[in-house]
Nucleic acid binder design. Structure first.
Length: 817
DNA sequence: ACCGAACCAGTTTTT
DNA sequence: CTGGTTCGGT
């Protein structure tokens, strides 16, 4: 197959040089099922890509026999890039991509069998939500009782669990109603020819499950299945893999299943941080059992971080109970200690951060090698302000991505309508944008008509009478004209024409603030242009060679008990499956681009190239690494997040999150927490994160003295509110402090921890009883009593509006009036 | 149709 | 406090 390589002896291959023994073992595993536990920074991606290259190079498999799945486009792209650098072989025929990308390819290839139109469009989260809102309005669903967002989560969760509406167990009336809406939503999507992300997966899974020839074909074809970030797979994704690997229904029933390919799952249970969106770490142990995994390899050598950083990570994660067990090690030496800083306020924390960054930059560190990590996006604000005021370039990850911007979505909606006029979501989005006199009244009329006729909005237009009908008719006519005019044009020309004729361009030109949006629209044209020019790459990866399926199709007898209409015999080779087939048909560039836009939401910021400090949530830092990392806001309630404290396993996931954060750092790591923090317009008094107690003291260096300014007398369990919790402060509002301390996890033992001796150099608070003071939350009050000294000091204060409270003076911010 | 006021929610996120 | 959404008045 690859003559130039056939002589190469596997073990001598340059590919295998510089691999450590475990990596080498993983790369050269025999064709069996295997689980690779790959710790952070252990060269996971390298192992994965090298294995693929090795398999190909040694002629064990042809490109068409490879299936490699990732979660993100970035990871998939990385794999392709590295692979093509390793092997002078094109990636044609290999299935390397994201779960959703591959499912999309699969469904495009078998759209008829999947009961989809060839032009089916993909709904992103926004689209899905608006589709549900539309549905709710149409069926008069009480959106107080059934908020569209919740319905969306419900439906997505059902699909992630592989459940159709009919499969969902209903317990109560509310559940019954939700399932009913789920079913209606399904119907609507089917009618409109659209699929959401979950549907891409579920539909693919069902097609494999229900269609024997198709299943057997793919089982036979994919000799080597490799899965990245296996700990993040959900139930459905795991089932999908089982099906492809021939370990699904057939195997369970003991039937003569086509022996499937080898499955190599790569993952790290300690980095499982997506349980909240359906990921099941349990898939790892299930995999070992259900696939009879005999080969397990741990990659524990870390090539990223120094010893103190790894020790911290190891020690922290050892506090988790449910682990497969793994310890990172390095030969790099201990390196610098992990620096810990405590500030009095979030503003002070930000200021400290900025000063520290400036110093680091002066010392020669590149700004892009400095990352600021936080638990939630809201925390970025103070930091941004401080960086901005100091004139330090920075870049924030997260937020709106390119293809999610309103003007881009508008343009895409027009383009989608050219492809599929029945896409009501897109229709609704632009029917009156730019404004063309079609108001709510007209839309309602149209919706009624369309519902009565059971047709799409597009087809219902002709039945709307009067002026409304005329306006709508004009809109549809415009779409139809554009469709005709764009026939045969290049993608670039199509988009340019649509931008003009839809009136979008004109609209934003006239708008005061429209300049940015115009630029984005121009950027859309660029994106399309570069998509087309890269298409060779994309197309190769996308296209399947006409392979044995073609041959099998001609033999595949209709006698297999299939519905004749579903028979592969009657199925013309779908274009994506046979791009070079005699039909000469391929997915149109426009359709391909729309798919691309839906599946890859694009980068978020343009400032990418600049040497800027990187700001992001811990979640989005996964997979990245930096010389220097700051983890900020390390306070109980912030990180670990308050919402995680109550639910089962929540704290363990938070701990894994912290583990991920720590292991991002190569050389230097800072941890910081603040006594007070502004949140939701109120100052909150937070305790230092419990995670500090789980780090090895020997690896840490406290820049600010440990315990200082931290209600030390009462130990970590000190309630910063004094006894505010008991005196019913907070009124009707949900009181964070009480919610934390009344929960089981706010352990009583922490309250009871013995007092430590007062600090020697404790600052005096300068309060005397009788003084009038002011508190950010409780307002004005009078000091009644004082107790303890130094950081242990507490004051009893009679607040005018909130009554008598005890406050820990080291934490509570009081001003003498 | 458009704008301002009132209102409300407010972890983490990829596809 | 803030941003996003909805509602109601012109």
């Amino acid at each position: 197959m690859f003559p130039e390589f056939t002589d190469t002896v596997a073990q001598d291959s340059p590919l295998l040089q510089n691999l450590n023994p475990e990596q080498l073992a993983a790369v050269t595993l025999p064709a069996t099922h295997a689980l690779i536990l790959a710790g952070a920074g252990s060269g996971k991606t390298r192992v994965l890509t090298t294995r693929i290259a090795w398999l190909l190079q040694t002629g064990q498999v042809s490109p068409g026999g490879i299936l490699a799945v990732t979660f993100t486009n970035k990871a998939a792209k990385e794999m392709l890039t590295r692979l093509s650098a390793m092997l002078p072989v094109n990636v044609r025929g290999m299935w390397i991509g994201t779960f959703h990308g591959l499912c999309n390819r699969f469904l495009r290839a078998h759209y008829k069998l999947a009961n989809l139109p060839s032009t089916f469009q993909i709904l992103d989260t926004q689209d899905m939500l608006s589709a549900i809102k539309r549905l709710c309005k149409q069926f008069n669903i009480d959106d107080e009782r059934f908020p569209p967002k919740q319905l969306m989560w419900f439906i997505a969760a059902c699909k992630e669990d592989g459940q159709r509406a009919k499969d969902v167990q209903v317990r109560d009336e509310e559940g019954r109603k939700k399932v009913e809406i789920y079913a209606l939503y399904e119907e609507q999507c089917q009618r409109e020819g659209v699929v959401d992300f979950g549907e891409l997966m579920l539909r693919s899974y069902e097609l494999l499950r229900d269609n024997l020839p198709v299943r057997e074909h793919y089982q036979r074809r994919f000799r080597h299945i490799l899965i990245d970030e296996f700990q993040d797979t959900n139930k459905l994704q795991y089932a999908w893999i089982k099906m492809l690997a021939g370990q699904g229904a057939d195997a369970a029933q003991g039937a003569q299943a086509m022996p499937g390919g080898s499955v190599v799952a790569v993952g790290d249970d300690d980095q499982s941080i997506y349980a909240f969106r359906g990921a099941r770490v349990g898939n790892m142990t299930d995999f070992v059992c259900e696939f009879n995994v005999t080969h397990q390899i741990k990659l524990e050598r870390n090539y990223r971080s120094f010893g103190n950083i790894l020790d911290s990570a190891n020690e922290l994660i050892s506090h988790n109970s449910k682990r497969l067990g793994k310890n990172l090690s390095t030969e790099a030496g201990p390196g610098e200690p992990v620096r810990v800083y405590e500030s009095t306020s979030d503003f002070a924390e930000a200021q400290w951060f900025v000063d520290e960054v400036k110093q680091l930059v002066r010392d020669g560190m590149e700004r892009k090698e400095i990352a600021l990590l936080y638990r939630s996006n809201a925390q970025s604000r103070v930091m941004e302000t401080a960086l901005f005021n100091a004139g330090v370039p920075y870049r924030v990850y997260g937020g709106l991505r390119f293809f999610e911007r309103a003007e881009i979505k508008h343009a895409l909606a027009y383009l989608r309508l050219l492809e599929n006029p029945h896409d009501d979501t897109s229709f609704m989005r632009v029917v009156n944008f730019p404004p063309r006199g079609i108001g709510g009244r007209s839309i309602e009329q149209l919706q009624d008509v369309a519902r009565a006729a059971g047709c799409s909005l597009h087809d219902g237009v002709s039945a709307v009478p009067g002026k409304a009908g005329a306006n709508l008719g004009a809109f549809v006519a415009k779409l139809d004209v554009m469709r005709e005019q764009t026939a045969g044009l290049t993608l670039r020309e199509i988009i340019e024409l649509v931008l003009q004729h839809s009136g979008l361009e004109e609209h934003y030109k006239l708008e005061k603030e429209g300049q940015d949006r115009l630029e984005n629209l121009a950027e859309l044209v660029n994106a399309a242009e570069s998509f087309v020019s890269q298409e060779g790459f994309g197309r190769d990866a996308m296209a399947l060679p006409v392979d044995e399926l073609g041959a099998r199709l001609t033999q595949s007898p209709a006698s297999q008990g299939l519905d004749p209409s579903a028979s592969l015999l009657d199925e013309p080779l779908p274009e994506a499956l046979a791009p070079d087939a005699e039909t000469g048909e391929t997915l149109s560039p426009l359709a391909a681009f729309l798919t691309h836009a839906a599946l890859e939401s694009g980068d978020n910021q343009a400032q990418a190239g600049q040497d800027a400090v990187q700001l992001m949530t811990v979640h989005s830092s996964k997979g990245l690494e930096f010389d220097c990392v700051f983890i900020t806001g390390l306070e109980d309630g912030v990180f670990p997040h308050e919402n995680s404290l109550s639910d089962h396993g929540g704290i363990e996931e938070e701990r894994r999150l912290m583990y991920v954060a720590i292991t991002r750092a190569r050389k230097r790591l800072y941890l910081s927490h603040s006594q007070t923090r502004m949140l939701h317009g109120q100052t909150r008094y937070n305790l230092r994160s419990r995670f500090f107690d789980e780090l090895p003291e020997s690896a840490l260096k406290w820049i600010t003295p440990k315990n200082q300014g931290f209600a030390p007398g009462l130990g970590r369990g000190s309630n910063a509110w004094g006894d505010a919790t008991n005196s019913g402060a907070g009124g009707g509002r949900k009181d964070w402090a009480s919610s934390v301390f009344s929960s089981k996890t706010g352990s009583a033992e922490r309250f009871a921890s013995p007092p430590v001796p007062p600090q020697k150099n404790a600052p005096s608070h300068g309060l005397k009883s009788g003084m009038e003071v002011f508190h950010a939350k409780f307002g004005e009050g009078k000091v009644m009593m004082l107790e303890g000294s130094g950081d242990d000091a507490r004051a009893q204060i009679n607040f005018t509006r909130h009554g008598v409270k005890w406050l820990a003076l080291s934490v509570a911010k009081l001003t003498v009036v």
